[in-house]
Every structure is written in C-alpha cells, then in structure tokens.
Design a protein around this nucleic acid. Structure first.
Lengths: 363, 363
DNA sequence: TTCAAGAATGTTTGCGTAAACATAGCGAGA
DNA sequence: TCTCGCTATGTTTACGCAAACATTCTTGAA
C-alpha cells in the first residue's frame, strides 16, 4: 500500500473532521476564481476602481479602464454573484412557480420566460408544484424567499383550487399568469374571449346552424372565459347555446364527451376548449363512424405542434405563449425596478388556424 | 400639495441620483430580514451559537438550542443564502442546460430534475438554449459559472451539432443526459437498445415477416442506438433489414416518410423512432387509405400522453423520464459531495405499451 | 499666481455567515 | 487534590464586493 491509498482509506476510517475538511476546502478553493483584489493587484489599481470598471461607471480614466479590463481578461475574472448579492440585496434572479410542466402552453411560456429573463441578465429559479394546495404554494414561496429571488412569476392553474386559499407573496414583486382577475398583481394572459369568438364565428361562417362546446373544467377561469365568449357569440348570432359538457382538459375526457355529442346526429360543429379534448373528441367521432369534417367539424384551442398532424389536421386557435412569457418578465422587471406595480391585466391576441377539421355542413 | 406629493413629484423631475438611490435603498432595506445577530441578541447567545443551531450541529445544549429556535421562529429568521454562499462557496443550486424545452421527454425530465433537486435542498437554475452551437453552450456554461451553481445537468440533443465541438465544464461537477458515450462525464439515459428491441420483437411476434424503420436524424445518438438495435433484432431473427428512411423527429417528417412507406404494399409493420413521427406516418397511411392496424401496424417510441388518443391509440415504448431526471440529480449530488465522479453510463429500462395500432398481418 | 471645483482614484467599512481559534466549566482518573 | 481532556459557548476573522467617505490631481477663472 502506498501513501495515497493510505490517505484514501483514511477518509472512510479516520476522524471525520479531517475527511470532511480536506476535500471541501480544497474544492472550494479550487472553485474560487480570482477576486476583485487579484485584478486590482494585477492592474496596479485599487479594488474600488476595479469595481467601478466592472459596473460600467464612467468616472474612470480610459487608460486605467483598459488596464483593468486587460487584467480581468488575463485572469479570467468573473464577479462573484454571492458577494454582490450580499452587498446589494439583489440576486438578479427570478423565481417561477408553476403547477403543471406537462402542459403545452406552460412549457412554451416557461421557455419564453427563461429566455427573456436570461436576456435581461436574470437567472430563472424553477419550482414545479405537483400538489397545488395552499401549503405547497406557501412552501414554494418561502423557498424562493430563502433563495433571495428578486421577483416571482406564478403560473396558475386556477381550476385546481379555490382562489381564496392562495396566499401570495406580500413583499416580493410578482406577476401572475392566469385568467382570473383580483389577485392584486399584474397579470398576463391570452385573450381567451377573442379566441373563443374566432372559433365560434369560424364555424358559423361555414354555415353551421349551431355550435356545440366541450368546456374545460368549471373551476378554470380560462375555461370559463372561453365558454362565456362562445355563448355570447352564439347569442349575438341569435342562436341559443346548447348545454355544455365539461371535460378536464385531457384527451380522455374529450373522448368521453365526444362519444356523447357524436351520437347526436344534430351535432355538426364542435368547439373544444383545448386541442387535447378536440383530439379525444375526434377519436370518438372516428369510432362512431362520423366523418370529419364531412359530418362534423371540430375546432380546438392552443395549437399544439402535433395538431397539424392529427387526423384530420385540426383547425384551432393559436395562443402566443411566447408573448405571454415575454410580457410577464417585462412587467416583473418593471416592478423590480421600482416602477408602478400596475395591477392591470395584459392580454395577448390569438389567431385562428384553419386546417382540415372544419368544413361547411353536409346538409 | 402636501409634502408627500412633493416628494413623489421629485422622483420623476429632480436629480436622477436621488430618484435611483432612494427607492432601491429603501426596498433593499425592507427586504432584508432579521440577521443571525438579531436572533443571537434575542436569544441572549452569540451569533456563532445561532449559526450552530441553524446548521444542525450537535454541540449545543438542548436548553440553549430551544431558546435559539424560539427566537428564530419569533423573528421569522431565515438564513441569508448570499452570505452563506459567499462564506462557503456553495450555492446549493444546480444549473440545467437544455436544448429543447418543447420535447416531451425533455420537459418530463426537467420536471423530475427540478423535483429531485428541490427535495435535496437545491434550487434549479434553468438555461434553455435555442441555437445549439458551441458558442451558446459555452456562453450558457459561463453564465452558470457566474451564478456559482454547484453543478450542471446538460440535456443534449446530440444530433444538432458535432460532439467534438462541445466544450464542457472543466472544474464543475456535471452530468450529461444523452446517449453518446465519451464526454468523460457520468451519463444517464434511457435504454434505447432495449426499447427498440421490444418494439421490433413485438411486431415479429405478431407474425410480421419484416419490420420497416423510420429513423431519427442520423446525427442523434439515441436515434442511432434505436436503429442499431432494431437492425440487430432483425438480424437475430434471420431477417435482412430494409433501407431506413430518416426523419427529424417531427410529425411532418414522419408524414413524409410514411407516404413513401405507405405506398409500398409490402410494408405491413413500421417502427418509428418516436411517437411524433409515428403520428405523422399514421396520418400518411390514413390518407393513402391503408388501414391501421389491419393493413399496417405502427409502433412508436416515447409514450406521449396523447398517444393513447391517437387514431388508433398508438402501441409504443414508454421511457421512464422521471427516473432519468432523478438519477441524474442523484449522480450529480454525489459528485458535488466529492464522491467518485464515476464516469459511467447509467441506463434506465423501458416498457412496451401495447395498444391498438398493432396487430397480426392480414395475409 | 492662487484657489475653488470637479474628476480620478484610494481607504474604510459593513453586508450575514461560519470557520478557526479562544475560553470557560466540568467530570474522570492519577 | 490536581491535572487532563472534553463539551459548550464566545470572539475574531475573512469570504468578495461596492457604498460612503477621503485623498490626490487637474483645470480654469479670479
């Protein structure tokens, strides 16, 4: 046995104080890059001057500035975020609490949020929640507070719990992505009403006398908005809206409702509150032997990437999730900067994507 | 006008130095909670003792510990992460670099990663990349280094660039989620070979004489693994593998290849390298009037949530993305703890999900 | 020529924490 | 009884940075 092996064995056998000290200290030292002081020494200036250069302040002579920049580059200096945060109280980090990463819209939104935040020099601290009760929301919020995030974006799935239960951050800038008003925070959301109107009008324009609706869960604000708008659009056309059957956003629930609607020969036009339920409904129609779009037209909501390849390709409402994410960061950064935390709802327009699942009624 | 209004007006009109100072300082002060010193004073002990309690060290008398804990609770004390990080050099934060948030597998994996990391007391710092060139990878890595993350999980989409181009972190623990060996980092991945074998064997077991394959992009290691395993399985059954047509994972590309394969009456069994291409291929088969599974059987890979509702419901290979995410965090934390950075590949088993898109051949 | 005003730069200090070191107190064995 | 050695606790210090304040130098007007 050589010395190295002895030492290695010692790690597991001998005093723990030695074993825990040695590697951690070593790795910590190794990880630490050059400090502001090292740069100062290399450039022959004071640490404060380096700090000034590092923060882009103006009152530094060009020549000095260059010397400092050179030293920085040569040493590979990177400002230490922990120290900066400790000093300034700002972490340049924003937290994202979201309830459902597996939703198409949410993941697109998250992507946009992360991109926008990065561009603004902020890091994104993600906390996905699975069990959306008050406890977990509060817990997530506390975790983020410990992490010293500068602000929070919360992507709600309002239908999963009672709004009154939600305890939102009090002293932390926040933006909520949701359709329900009244959190007292700036909100960003797709223009649900517009989208639902587009969908309904499209079917009416094709000549359908009636448009059936597969609603989302009743406790979802966005689902409610879509339903209300669909009803209003029919109203305006002098049509009395039929009974709404509700799913839970899943393809399976769409299938259930689709079976029910499909059996009714009266039904020639269906507007589903999301693409997945539309997909399920189409499957039901296939099984019932009803042709799409010849016998029944179907419109969805979301515009999943896959929707172009459904059978038939689905006519749907495209949501601009990218804009939703980008806007929410924009508003959050405004708040962090201390500007008016305008408690308003910002709305993002939608677009009708006409594909193969809709046509004029057969009769 | 009262004094308050004067002051408020001053913010927008008077010297900028004043306006920028005042709110930021105020908010910073307001945000700072009680410090370890405040707790110490309240409990009548030294700051160090509070620190010991806070870190769960043992050499504190039970009575003292209780007094400190009470004081903490009463003051609502939360350790300051910045200070802790500055002192210890550890941020309790792991970075995630991923190339494609909009992939089903990736988002599931991310979810698992975030959950596992949270449970271990680590925060997740997400950096999604859109343009996966060496530059952006390096940039993302540098950003994470600035953020002082303790480790990095990189979710590669190997097919998007040349592996040799990738500059991986040198002094930062890392785990790679990918199918290509040789990064010199621990890797975690689905057992691609097993899955492809399951799919191919399933079709052969049903009585098909030949199995056609829609491959993923040639530069993707996971695609390559699936293809190789498919070929080997046919080999072992004494069947010479037909020419492979490659898609790019998208439904659209699956549709293209599906049209080509579907026109060949010989083709009775198709194994697509992912569910989306399988979906595209099924659309092509529908358009060509070929019945699924009566005329042609189709198997996918991934098991998207929607796959149960495709028409017909898709037989596919389920990947356990949750396990992939969980294992990658496990390995990363081991490395961070200083344990052997075992540069091994960990493989996660798959499962065949038989649904309605496969059946015995008609003949 | 003198000095005030301002620009460039340096020095001191403290953010909150925890390691390192110091001290006090107490029990066991010589 | 007197150490020795342990445990519980306190004190000092440094992590890296940037505000606050201090100093030096430059410039131009009186």
């Amino acid at each position: 046995m050589n010395i190295q092996e002895d030492a290695a064995d010692g790690v597991s056998l001998a005093s723990t104080s030695h074993t825990s000290d040695s590697p951690s200290v070593r790795s910590a030292r190794a990880a630490r890059g050059p400090s502001i002081g090292d740069v100062a020494r290399a450039a022959g200036v004071s640490a404060q001057t380096v700090s000034r250069v590092s923060n882009g302040l103006t009152n530094v002579e060009e020549k000095t500035k260059q010397r400092v920049l050179d030293a920085m580059k040569q040493l590979g200096y990177r400002p230490n975020r922990a120290a900066r945060a400790l000093k300034s109280g700002q972490f340049k980090s924003i937290g994202v609490i979201m309830f459902n990463l597996s939703t198409y819209g949410n993941r697109r939104t998250l992507d946009a949020i992360a991109t926008a935040a990065s561009q603004a020099g902020y890091s994104v601290n993600l906390i996905p929640l699975h069990d959306p009760t008050t406890g977990t929301v509060t817990g997530a919020y506390n975790r983020l507070k410990e992490q010293d995030v500068d602000g929070v974006v919360i992507i709600f799935e309002a239908h999963l719990f009672d709004r009154a239960d939600i305890t939102l951050p009090e002293d932390l800038p926040a933006v909520v992505i949701d359709s329900s008003p009244g959190y007292g925070y700036p909100m960003v959301d797709t223009d649900q009403a517009e989208g639902a109107r587009f969908a309904t009008e499209h079917l009416l324009d094709l000549g359908h006398q009636q448009v059936w609706h597969i609603g989302g869960p009743v406790s979802s604000f966005s689902a409610r908005h879509r339903e209300e708008s669909w009803r209003r659009t029919l109203d305006e056309a002098g049509i009395e809206a039929p009974t709404v059957l509700h799913g839970d956003w899943s393809t399976e629930s769409g299938y259930q409702v689709g079976m029910e609607l499909g059996r009714d020969r009266e039904v020639t036009a269906i507007f589903a509150a999301n693409d997945q339920m539309a997909l399920g409904a189409m499957r039901a129609l296939h099984e019932l032997g009803r042709l799409i779009p010849d016998d029944v037209s179907v419109v969805g909501f979301d515009d999943l990437e896959e929707s172009t390849s459904f059978w038939p390709p689905l006519t749907t409402i495209r949501q601009d999730f990218l804009a939703v994410g980008r806007l929410s960061i924009e508003k959050l950064l405004q708040q962090i900067a201390g500007n008016t935390p305008a408690s308003v709802v910002t709305t993002v327009p939608t677009r009708l994507m006409v594909r193969k699942s809709t046509a004029a009624p057969a009769g």
